[in-house]
Write a protein that binds this DNA or RNA. Structure first.
Lengths: 240, 240
DNA sequence: GTCTATACCCCGATAGAC
DNA sequence: GTCTATCGGGGTATAGAC
């Protein structure tokens, strides 16, 4: 309901700019991202880009949202394509996270690396940001539900020595957040899920940022070992 | 055996420069670090700094080594001060890592955040870099050795479903590296130690970089829960 | 909407006087 | 060893012609 041609052209240019920005991001990292550089890449002059993005920070925000959404969608798709077996869904989801990260190291650095100094992510980013973690939590919830008593081990892993404060108020926010998305997890599983998410991220981060140079030679194989043990700690069996 | 006065003055200025650089690092991050800025901070002109550091990258390298060493020393000291009980040493070492990181977020970002584009860490950094991980591995080795059969659980945690490749060749480099420092770990414990190190780092990283905003409210308490469970997974009990 | 031109900052690094 | 001055590059952002 409006001048469609002009609007469509605008959308096209906007997509071009975003694509060029992601190119720069992917192989040079967030700090190397500048409006001038992407302007050069798309054959525009820098001031023209300002008609599409009021500032460099707005471009960063758009990239942040696009990346969070792309990663989240990749995980959700992998999960959906993995069939009904929770252990297989877990493997598919975790592998999807790593695959995307390895394919887009600059974007990974934007999402999970050091924050860009002087830039604070606005509120619009928090929902896309939660998407991946929620997808993981959903898989865990289903796995734990269906694993209860299915094999010899209890659905909720025992925590004989994990003392201070049980699940405690430290993670109360997580309970609230998950509940608002219709996900309920036993306390112990909740903490284990947070840990697993941190471990998956930490492992990929170590691999991409070069901290495995003299210890892990095969990132692929090692990652599979890690997620197998994480599933184990969560009370179900990973299925490869 | 040389002109001491002049040399001493030089050392003093050098220390001043490094201190100023660490200041900038701590509250602005690695990318904001420039020779000109630190020159202003110490009241010098930029060209004068080049008499002490041939390039910005050399300054970065010096900071990298200083930070790795400071973190490593903090962990080693905490370990040594914790007494003989392995579970207590583990808690002390892990807490020391987090304390240092929280106190120096910019330095943490330099060591473990996104790599600075265009800068590649030289070989001199790898030994200091390994110091912290080695300290952790030593604690684990001692804990596992003394925990064997001490309580009901075996010293080496069982891995019922952790299939692909046992410990596998993926971590063969880690075996070699540890052995060169006189540390031997059972395969399963080795993988678990690598995982624990990734989890500790990932947890601190999430906390510092703002990924726990709607899930973890008390970083201190949550971290203690995490390291308790990690010890459990490694086959011994954390002692708080 | 897109261009040129510009104001005003930053940076790394070097030359040469003192 | 420290200074001034400078080269040559980068950047954000805006004004105003077309």
């Amino acid at each position: 309901m409006a001048p469609t041609a002009r609007e469509l052209a605008r959308q096209t240019v906007l997509a071009d700019i975003l694509a060029a920005a992601r190119m720069r991001l992917t192989d040079e990292g967030p700090v190397a991202l500048s409006l001038r550089a992407v302007a050069r890449d798309v054959g525009m002059v820098s001031s023209a880009v300002y008609r599409y993005f009021p500032s460099r920070d707005d471009l960063l925000t758009a990239l942040l949202i696009a990346d969070y959404d792309e990663l989240g969608a990749a995980v959700e798709d992998a999960d959906a394509a993995a069939g009904p077996v929770p252990g297989a869904r877990w493997v598919a989801a975790c592998r999807a996270i790593r695959s995307w990260s390895v394919a887009h190291p600059g974007d990974f650095a934007l999402l999970f690396g050091s924050p860009v100094p002087g830039y604070a992510a606005p509120r619009e980013t928090v929902v896309p940001a939660a998407r991946t973690a929620l997808a993981l939590a959903r898989v865990v919830a289903d796995a734990v539900a269906s694993a209860s008593g299915a094999d010899g081990r209890p659905g909720s892993p025992s925590a004989p020595t994990a003392a201070p404060g049980a699940a405690g108020p430290a993670v109360a926010d997580a309970v609230t957040t998950l509940r608002s998305f219709g996900i309920e997890l036993p306390d112990e599983v909740l903490v284990r899920t947070l840990m697993a998410w941190s471990t998956v991220f930490g492992t990929i981060s170590f691999e991409l940022f070069g901290h495995f140079v003299s210890s892990v030679s095969d990132g692929d194989a090692y990652f599979d070992q890690v997620i197998a043990r994480l599933a184990d700690d969560l009370g179900f069996a990973a299925a490869f």
